[in-house]
Simulated assay, not measured.
Amino acid sequence: MAGDVITPAISDRICAHMNDDHADAVLIYAKVFGNASEATAAKMLAIDPEGMDISAEVDGQEQAVRVAFDHTLADSEDAHQTLIAMIKQARQKG
Results as ranks from 00 to 15, higher is better:
51 G>H: 04
47 I>D: 09
67 V>A: 09
4 D>G: 08
28 I>C: 13
77 E>T: 13
33 F>S: 05
76 S>V: 06
35 N>M: 09
70 D>Q: 12
27 L>W: 00
24 D>N: 14
28 I>P: 00
17 H>T: 10
91 R>W: 11
63 Q>I: 08
9 A>E: 15
14 I>S: 08
33 F>R: 04
52 M>P: 07
38 E>R: 14
71 H>V: 00
19 N>P: 14
63 Q>C: 09
82 T>E: 10
78 D>E: 11
23 A>N: 04
75 D>E: 07
39 A>W: 01
40 T>A: 02
24 D>Y: 10
10 I>F: 02
72 T>N: 03
25 A>P: 02
6 I>L: 10
72 T>Y: 06
9 A>D: 15
47 I>A: 12
74 A>N: 13
11 S>T: 06
50 E>V: 06
15 C>N: 12
17 H>M: 05
84 I>E: 08
29 Y>W: 07
50 E>H: 10
89 Q>R: 15
22 H>V: 01
14 I>K: 09
30 A>D: 04
43 K>T: 13
25 A>M: 11
69 F>G: 02
83 L>M: 13
85 A>H: 01
39 A>K: 03
81 Q>A: 11
58 V>W: 03
54 I>E: 14
47 I>H: 13
48 D>I: 05
74 A>F: 07
17 H>F: 07
51 G>T: 04
75 D>P: 08
18 M>A: 11
28 I>R: 13
19 N>H: 09
88 K>Q: 12
58 V>P: 02
40 T>G: 15
93 K>P: 00
90 A>K: 01
35 N>C: 10
11 S>V: 03
58 V>C: 06
66 R>N: 08
53 D>R: 15
2 A>T: 08
61 Q>L: 07
85 A>M: 06
75 D>A: 05
46 A>P: 05
21 D>F: 05
19 N>Y: 05
83 L>A: 01
64 A>E: 14
11 S>Q: 05
92 Q>V: 11
45 L>K: 15
57 E>N: 13
62 E>I: 02
86 M>A: 07
94 G>T: 12
62 E>L: 09
16 A>N: 06
86 M>P: 01
2 A>G: 00
92 Q>A: 15
27 L>I: 01
25 A>Y: 06
78 D>F: 09
27 L>V: 02
49 P>W: 03
32 V>K: 05
66 R>D: 03
72 T>I: 10
56 A>L: 03
89 Q>S: 14
40 T>W: 01
34 G>R: 08
86 M>G: 04
36 A>F: 08
88 K>P: 00
3 G>C: 09
81 Q>C: 04
79 A>T: 01
62 E>N: 10
25 A>N: 11
48 D>N: 15
41 A>C: 00
29 Y>L: 01
23 A>E: 09
15 C>Q: 12
10 I>N: 07
39 A>N: 01
5 V>Q: 13
66 R>Q: 12
89 Q>D: 14
53 D>T: 15
34 G>T: 11
